[in-house]
Amino acid sequence: MDGSAVITDPKTASAALLPLGQRPRLLEMSAVDKIFNGDVVALRGMSLSVHQGDFISLLGPSGCGKSTALRLIAGLMRPTSGAIRWEGGQQKGDLGVVFQEPTLMPWATVAQNVWLPFRLRGRSFSSVRDDVLWALKLVGLEKFQTAYPRELSGGMKMRASIARALVTQPRLILMDEPFAALDEITRHRLNNDLLELRDKLNCTVIFVTHSVFESVFLSDRIVVMAARPGRVSRELTVDAPYPRGEVFRTSAAYAELCRAASDALHGAMNEHGERDRA
């Protein structure tokens, strides 16, 4: 739909996820600087290749520019220098976004909220009802179509927000610490469910987090970032097969990967003799 023939239709069985290194390129960020007020360097020389099917975590302390990077990719700001290029050009509907807050419209029902990306493209509700239902089913909210956001728990609101990001089957999904404000148990469950969705849809995700565990569990690439100025410190590959579940979470490999990521994060925080530790 909408001419985005690049993605396989997830409603039918999707093509198997290609191994890292063989995936077609989706987006290229090259030597991007973002400077605020002339002297606050939010991001320096960030380069990142995003490939179809990548689950990339941007991991780092606050002030490392991970949210700035996300806003640049989302097109909410323009780089001071450098460039962000989409393979085949960027089109309306290429992006789905999930913020830290569920960011639902309180006056609209769950289904109406999920309809929004279509509505803004001039599509009537009846013409996309199937897509809305499909997205709600994916996140387990099909019984709450007519509920208002205030009637939902924090985790369910976040699910609705994820459904809205998925409904148009965008080429890239950006998630900005989506589970940071949730309790540990809900976050745990949503992490599992997110991976299940990813296995079903083979969607491409850039996920901002400050949790080492979350980044290791979810992603196949972890981009570790450092602060002052915000920049990429190093990149790790999480070499564990999907689907991942509780077995992976309790495995020795997971613990080892977490230690490696944690070391990388601390290394990043100590670069250039940083004074403060998070």
Binding site: R71, A74, G75, G93, L95, V97, E101, T103, R121
Partner: peptide
């Protein structure tokens, strides 16, 4: 209006009228 919702509308390419 919630600033995240405003950002969301921008990302989805909403017109001024929308």
């Amino acid at each position: 209006t919630d600033h995240n919702l405003r950002d969301l509308y921008r990302i989805y390419g909403a017109t001024r009228w929308q």
